[in-house]
Every structure is written in structure tokens, then in C-alpha cells.
């Protein structure tokens, strides 16, 4: 987005333009990304392939234009992501000449940890949280960008933009560094790290609007299409491959569905929808009566569960 046109006063003197809320949020995110690139030795950007990651990637390209993004992107692959996500990831990495790292918890793969036999909590813990910690330890990143937003969940509303993690990757909500003005404290000791959330102050609507205005490409799963699904726990689950065990008498049916959030396909429910364009998605969203993370099964395990996961190192 280029800042709004400046208006001109009667005297012909150019008046100073005022900025819209998205322009201000964009500038804030770019400032944060540059601060990290300038202050840390070994930063990384978490890349989940979702719409927020698409926005983050776009912001990073802007932050370092005309240069290349000066840090790698890391995708933690649980091996249960939608196939279209992986195809999208690989194509985007090529198109933008990204330094893409993919990490999978090989120990979890050997033990065949999966969401069907082990449940969402254990699967997430092993294939996502533990895998993430493995990757951070392996590459010794001292800063990791995440696309979390404060409007998503209550514990996130209190997290800093620069969120300190101990050498064990733990978050201590009682002992966060005060964050003043745009003066971010980037200092860490060896082994410690900072999780950085440049789009903390964006809302879900802001994300969609920005994707629309900037014409940013997202995984097609966000748009409604006829897809094979089964009904589980009152939610539509995509039959993305033949690893999903069908119950006796269960037949995948073709439904017009889309996804409001993307993760592991067995843990991410589809919603019935006819929205095939961004404006239609926004329109559906404005009429929606459920919040975005509802489609994510992991948040509901227990009251305050996101806060617990975050303390243990989940993003």
C-alpha cells in the first residue's frame, strides 16, 4: 500500500497527508521487522503458510525492499498439514527467492504420533511445540517472528510485541519486560530468545482487508469450493488424504466449504460457505457469529489452555 494521496490547500501548498489505520499498522510492523534485523544475530520468521503468514511475508518484503529478506523462514511441518498448503509454501518460496527451512519432529514421526490415535493435545505437543523447540535449538535462533495477534485470544492480548523466552523457551506472563513507545529491548543472553509479533495490533478484519488491498495471494483453501468432508464432533473435517480413518458407514460427501484458519487438517474444521472472493469472505465474516479460533480444536481442551501452551513454548 502506498500512503494516501496528499490533499492540497487552496494556497497550492501541499498539506501533509494523514494516514489510515492500516497504513499506521503496516508502518509499525515494518519498523519492528527492521529493528529485529538490525539488532539480532540470527533471526527467523515462523511461516505457517496461513493468511497471517502471507501478510507477514508481504510486510517483510516491504521492510527490506529493494533488498532481499535478510533472514530465513521456518515452517514446522507436523506432516498433517493440508496438501495444498505444502504446494503453496514451496511455490511461494521459489517465487520470492526465500531461504525456507522445514523442520519435522522425526522422533514423533518414528513413533507415528498422529491426531487420530493420540488426540489433539498430545499431537500438538509433540509435532508442533516440541518440534518448534527442537528447531530453535538446532539453528540457535535468537529471535523468531510469529504472526500472533492480540485480538485472537485473551492471553495474547497481554503479550508484548517483543516477548522474552528463557533458554528453555518458556514465557513468564508475570515477568514480562515493560514495552514503552517504540523502544524495543532486544538484548538477550546466549540461549535466550525473543518471540516477536509484528502484527500484534492487527485484527482479523485488518488482515483480510490488507490481503484484499495489497492483492496478496493466500492458500486456495480459504476460498469456498466443493471438497470431500466428513462430519465429526459436529464439525466438517476435510478428507485430505487416505490417512484419515473412516468409521463404519462413513462416506465422504462433497460440500461447498472453506477454511477460516489453517493447521493440521484433522484438527481444522471447515465451514460451509459460498464465498469465493475476498470481499465475499469479509462479508461472511462481518455476519459471522463465531470467532476465528473456534475452528481450532486445540484451544478448547481446557479453560485457559492457550496460556498454558504459551508458557510451555507454543507460539
Amino acid at each position: 500500500m502506498s500512503p494516501s494521496e496528499s490533499s492540497r490547500t487552496d494556497a497550492g501548498q501541499p498539506a501533509l497527508p494523514s494516514r489510515t489505520h492500516l497504513e499506521r499498522l503496516e508502518a509499525e510492523a515494518i519498523h519492528i521487522m527492521r529493528e529485529v534485523a538490525a539488532s539480532f544475530e540470527n533471526p527467523v520468521m515462523m511461516y505457517s503458510i496461513g493468511k497471517d503468514s502471507s501478510v507477514m511475508l508481504h510486510l517483510a518484503r516491504k521492510a527490506f525492499y529493494p533488498g532481499r529478506i535478510p533472514f530465513p523462514l521456518l515452517h514446522v511441518d507436523t506432516t498433517w498439514k493440508f496438501r495444498e498448503m505444502i504446494a503453496f509454501r514451496d511455490r511461494v518460496a521459489k517465487e520470492y527467492d526465500l531461504d525456507l527451512l522445514v523442520h519435522t519432529n522425526e522422533e514423533g514421526v518414528r513413533q507415528n504420533v498422529n491426531p487420530f490415535d493420540h488426540g489433539s493435545a498430545y499431537h500438538t505437543d509433540v509435532m508442533k511445540t516440541a518440534a518448534l523447540k527442537q528447531a530453535l535449538d538446532k539453528y540457535k535462533f535468537d529471535a523468531a517472528f510469529g504472526g500472533a495477534r492480540r485480538d485472537e485470544e485473551k492471553s495474547r492480548a497481554k503479550e508484548r510485541v517483543f516477548s522474552f523466552r528463557t533458554a528453555q523457551h518458556r514465557w513468564d506472563p508475570k515477568n514480562q519486560r515493560p514495552e514503552l513507545w517504540n523502544l524495543y529491548n532486544t538484548r538477550v543472553r546466549p540461549g535466550e530468545s525473543i518471540r516477536v509479533f509484528p502484527i500484534s495490533n492487527w485484527t482479523e478484519l485488518d488482515i483480510w482487508q490488507y490481503l484484499y488491498q495489497e492483492e496478496i495471494e493466500i492458500v486456495p483453501l480459504y476460498f469456498a469450493a466443493r471438497r470431500p468432508v466428513v462430519r465429526r464432533f459436529d464439525q466438517w473435517i476435510l478428507v485430505d488424504d487416505d490417512r484419515i480413518p473412516l468409521r463404519p458407514g462413513e462416506e465422504p460427501e462433497m460440500k461447498m466449504v472453506r477454511f477460516r484458519t489453517l493447521g493440521c487438517y484433522p484438527l481444522t474444521a471447515a465451514v460451509e460457505s459460498t464465498a469465493t472472493t475476498l470481499p465475499e469472505i469479509v462479508q461472511e465474516m462481518l455476519l459471522a457469529k463465531t470467532s476465528e479460533r473456534e475452528g481450532r480444536i486445540i484451544d478448547f481442551d481446557q479453560s485457559g489452555s492457550m496460556e498454558k501452551k504459551k508458557q510451555e513454548g507454543y507460539f
Binding site: M1, S2, P3, S6, P14, L16, P17, R19, E23, R24, E26, A27, E28, I30, H31, R34, K62, A63
Partner: peptide
């Protein structure tokens, strides 16, 4: 997005 004619407080 292209060169600007003016940058004001807050612009990155």
C-alpha cells in the same frame, strides 16, 4: 509500492 512525494511522521 513505489517512490513517495512526501514521508510524514510514522511512515516506515
Amino acid at each position: 509500492s513505489g517512490d513517495l512525494d512526501v514521508a510524514v511522521a510514522g511512515d516506515a
